[in-house]
Amino acid sequence: MLYFILRRLVLVVPILIGLTLLLFVVARLLPGDPVGLAAGPNASAETIAQLRQEFGFDQPLPIQYWTYVTGLLQGDWGTSVFTRRPVFEDILTYLPATLELVFAALLLAVVIGIPLGLLTAVYRNGALDYATRTLALGGIAMPRFFLGLLLQLAFAAWLGWLPLSGRYPFIEMPPETITGFYTIDSLLAGDFYALRVAIAHLVLPAFAMALSPLATIMRMMRASTIEVLQQDYVMTERALGLSNRLILFKYVLKNAMTSTLTVIGLYVSWLLGGTVLVETVFDWPGLGLYASQAILTQDFMPVIGVTLVIAIIYLITMLVVDLLYGVFNPKVRYA
């Protein structure tokens, strides 16, 4: 297995190099003048030229790329033209908020989606099955930002049960930063008030993000479970007199999980790349908003940096998913 992991990690290197090269070239080919924009509407041509030199944009493209790649290896991800801060620092600021949201959404999707998928497969064509399938269709079809607005209206504006937006009440101090995840930081600090506040702020945006993956996971789980339930070995187990619960949770679940696991893995990057709308609606200060701001101002370095982070997380997730196949299916060998 160690050889498998090492081989996969080695493969990551050319992928990331290719990605940086592609992004670097495409970003420079786009029409626009990010330095002119960052210099301000009234900056003189000399000031813009000076800034362009300062950011190294006056160098030939291959030299710019070489400088960037060598900088990457030393932990320098470049500087944002817009914020003038190091991109890596910016990413560290915004990433925890996004990861917390993505993990919360994924948790909701998995914790609700898998049991529902199992139940609807076992009781297929029953009332629960029809109801959840209808809801699943709605969940997949409804745009996340629209769902977010509906949730805000219902649970924040009308009922007043949950906060409207943000990660934490903006007149209060959030828990001291350790991991950047407010839920974990408040737990580590033993501050249960902060935990409650952080969770309350997380519920609506996480649910808005979770609904689509939840519906997909549920449908995938249902389909896989139905397929597995029709396998000969399940009939044999039933003939041997094993209880339904044992068959379902010990034998069927594991086999049905393989394809669902792939979907869950894919959803990590889908959620990471798609946070921008939910972050906008809920004023969630995360990576999506940072990236969208950078895209609008053609601030190359943050765009490349965010894409790299998403790519790295995606590659790691897929590696973990591949490893988890072995847990659910011992026949899988890592050769």
Partner: peptide
């Protein structure tokens, strides 16, 4: 846990003399 998260929510700046301004624009520098 569910009830704790769904308790009536009152987070605002009332009671303190703190003025809140909403804008779409960041302050990068």
């Amino acid at each position: 846990a569910g009830i704790a998260a769904v308790l009536p929510w009152h987070a605002n700046a009332q009671g303190r003399k703190i003025m809140v301004l909403a804008s779409t624009v960041d302050i990068p520098n």
